[in-house]
Amino acid sequence: MKIVIVSDTHMPRMAKQLPMALTPHLSNADAIIHAGDWQDKSVYEKLVQYAPVYGVTGNVDEEWLHRRFTKKILLKIDNVRIGVTHGDGKGKTTEQRAMDLFSQEAIDILIFGHSHIPLKKDKDGMILFNPGSPTDKRRQQQYSFGLLEINDKSYTISHLFFDSKK
């Protein structure tokens, strides 16, 4: 199973369309995970044309998205347990807020966004993963998103980086 992971698309403010570097991966995805800050429902409407979309809300999302999604989801795909949240809030780091939200859950991967900073690290056997942003790289050198490939109990998760959001 191939899953595309995005966050912080901030559309249409930061881009009018999905980046060309992202769309071929969406075309052969089995699912899409969005870790919040979509901005408006047009992002969901575009993504769901490619594959089923699982997501959470962020701090800049319109009301429609807050009615459709929650701040936290727990997914089990094959035998991989995935927690997803945006990571916004007050105090602590984005990473720490995300971990605190899932402190009572046994998960393999924790996906979050908010900082726009790509991250992949092992924390006591759990992978912390921030895909970065495909449309708003802020101070990063490149735009980015994530790919998760699951084969029964094993998985690989990685970033894809690119230079243009067009």
Rank of each mutant, 00 (worst) to 15 (best):
Y44T: 01
Y44H: 07
Y44G: 02
E45G: 04
K46V: 02
V48E: 09
Q49F: 06
Y50C: 05
A51K: 02
V53A: 00
Y54P: 10
Y54A: 01
G55Y: 06
G58P: 09
N59S: 12
N59W: 14
V60Q: 09
E63S: 11
E63L: 12
R67D: 14
R67Q: 14
F69G: 03
F69T: 05
F69E: 03
F69D: 05
L74G: 12
L75K: 04
L75Y: 13
D78P: 11
D78H: 15
D78M: 11
N79Q: 11
R81I: 13
G83W: 05
G83Y: 08
V84R: 00
G87Y: 02
G87N: 01
G87L: 03
D88A: 07
K90L: 13
G91W: 09
K92D: 14
K92N: 13
E95F: 02
Q96V: 10
A98I: 01
M99C: 12
D100V: 00
D100H: 08
D100P: 07
L101A: 07
L101V: 04
L101D: 05
L101Q: 09
F102L: 04
S103G: 12
Q104K: 15
I107S: 05
I107Q: 06
D108N: 11
D108W: 08
I109M: 03
L110C: 08
L110M: 07
G113R: 00
H114T: 06
I117F: 09
I117R: 14
L119V: 12
K120H: 12
K121P: 10
K121N: 09
K121M: 12
D122I: 15
D122V: 15
K123E: 12
D124Y: 15
D124T: 13
D124K: 12
G125F: 11
G125Q: 07
L128C: 05
L128N: 04
F129M: 03
